[in-house]
């Protein structure tokens, strides 16, 4: 019964409830009209570091519980340019993931709605390059929500710090990659980053930001100096 309800509401969302003409979306989408300048120097690129905490690891079924993001440009993070929210998820039943993020249903109840978060997020994020650790998952989660509320997906270019870290290792050309070495914890240790406030979305976004700064400088020393280089 529950399943049918869900299916019906999903189909209806798709047909009638989506509003692709939402002003936040239009503002956001317009930013992507101009062509991406791949020659842009790293110092001039606007990045935004993102991390999410979710109810689980299935982006089709699970929901975002919190999101943290902070802007980076010119090797600098501006504290006033940040984005930190808890989300109110109606059908949040704490499962396994609560051991990781520790977000209680009562905390979630005090959050803002997913849609409200997305509207603000589009204004915050703009056409900046999204950066995160194993960011593919966060993007998938965000896109699920985006499709639900706007029938659209994020248009931003994306950079993964895990992959950047791998690019700095010469050895993987010869040896198979040991993926455990590129977990956020392992990289924090390698790059001497104090792992405080781990497993809160904002805390992880912040730490990943510092990791990204340290990686960027090392990549630049290897001649990776433009957006084009970063995105390849």
């Amino acid at each position: 019964m529950e399943y049918w309800k869900k299916l019906v509401s999903y189909l209806f969302h798709k047909e009638w409830s989506i509003r692709p003409d939402d002003p936040a979306w239009l503002r956001y989408a317009a930013l992507f009209d101009k062509k991406l300048n791949r020659k842009k120097q790293i110092r001039d690129i606007h990045f935004v570091l993102i991390d999410t905490e979710t109810t689980g690891f299935d982006f089709r079924k699970d929901h975002i519980l919190s999101i943290g993001a902070i802007g980076i440009r010119n090797y600098e993070m501006d504290i006033s340019d940040r984005f930190e929210y808890y989300l109110k998820q109606e059908d949040y039943h704490p499962g396994k993931s609560i051991e990781v993020h520790g977000i209680l249903p009562s905390r979630s109840q005090k959050g803002i709605s997913e849609k409200e978060m997305l509207i603000q997020f589009l204004d915050f994020c703009q056409d900046r390059i999204i950066v995160g650790h194993h960011i593919g998952f966060d993007i998938a989660m965000l896109n699920t929500a985006m499709k639900k509320h706007f029938g659209k997906q994020l248009k931003n270019k994306v950079v993964d710090t895990g992959i950047l870290a791998q690019r700095l290792e010469i050895t993987h050309a010869i040896y198979p990659i040991d993926h455990s070495r590129f977990s956020l914890d392992a990289l924090c240790q390698q790059y001497h980053i104090a792992p405080r406030n781990r497993h809160t979305a904002s805390g992880d976004a912040f730490i990943t930001g510092i990791l990204f700064l340290k990686l960027l400088d090392r990549l630049e020393k290897r001649g990776i100096s433009t957006l084009g280089h970063l995105l390849t």
Partner: peptide
């Protein structure tokens, strides 16, 4: 908005 990052700096 939450202030985890802000508190870290603080």
């Amino acid at each position: 908005m939450e202030n985890v990052i802000l508190h870290r700096v603080f």
